[in-house]
């Protein structure tokens, strides 16, 4: 078994135009920076991107937007991005807005082999359009489908050659579920550590979900809103 690849360019081999790709991260926190840069440098196009957010201009998924490599975006909140607005209004880009918890659960279900499930979010709103509605114990629910993708690209703090991953603070977010929902899952990590050095009690994502792993370089970790208090 060899899951370790050299870098992002090698990791995204086989990722082709027209595919669906999940990207971990919440805002710019916990995004796979190296793979996004490698994708932006490639001529891969027409991607369906599944991610909570769409980055900001020229950062994160914003890099793929700038190059018009995205055909469809599935996410819960896509503000803070002028190029996104422009492409959406001009009709170049298709967008499917999904309530955040529903998106998270669709990905979790997809990875866990659950084809569909019911949630209350969106009942009575435009999110309900075209969906099966069902009552349980006097409350109304919408049926939602599990979601998988051709590739899932996640970012972790530490990982080992077997693909075991540990996240740091709120940089976990969508990464953990997406790892299980990719037909091929790429993990880029800040630190690739020797097998056995991660305490099995501390593993967030078991290696079974990860097919390719590499240690990333030059993480910028841009912050969207720096808020501080006086000492």
């Amino acid at each position: 078994m060899n899951k370790v690849v050299k870098n992002a360019e090698e990791a995204i081999r086989g990722l082709e135009s027209g595919m669906s790709v999940m990207f971990g991260g919440f805002g710019l926190c916990g995004i796979p920076e190296n793979c996004l840069t490698a994708l932006a440098a490639s001529d891969i196009r027409d991607l369906t991107c599944i991610s909570n957010n769409a980055g900001i201009d020229n950062v994160g998924l914003g890099k793929l937007l700038r190059n018009r490599q995205m055909r469809k975006m599935m996410g819960s909140y896509v503000g803070e991005n002028k190029e996104f607005e422009r492409q959406l209004l001009s009709g170049e880009l298709e967008v499917e807005l999904i309530p955040q918890g529903t998106l998270a659960e669709r990905i979790r279900a997809g990875g866990a082999g659950i084809p569909a499930f019911y949630v209350p979010a969106g009942y009575g709103t435009e999110v309900q359009e075209g969906k099966e509605v069902r009552e349980f114990n006097g409350k109304m629910y919408l049926m939602e489908y599990g979601l998988r993708a051709d590739f899932a690209i996640v970012k972790a703090w530490k990982g080992d050659a077997l693909g075991n991953l540990v996240y740091r603070h709120t940089a976990n977010n969508f990464n953990n579920m997406m790892a299980a929902a990719g037909i091929i899952t790429i993990a880029e990590v800040e630190e690739l550590v020797p097998v056995g050095s991660i305490d099995p009690n501390q593993v967030h994502t078991p290696g079974i979900y990860v097919q390719r792993i590499f240690q990333g370089v030059n993480y910028v970790k841009q912050i969207e809103f720096v808020t501080t208090r006086e000492k």
Binding site: G75, Y77, G79, L89, L97, P99, G101, A121, G122, V127
Partner: peptide, 15 residues
């Protein structure tokens, strides 16, 4: 106006 998305608001109010 531009639609930015519902984020987690629909999940929160429904549950």
């Amino acid at each position: 106006k531009l639609v930015k998305g519902m984020g987690g608001a629909m999940d929160l109010v429904a549950a």
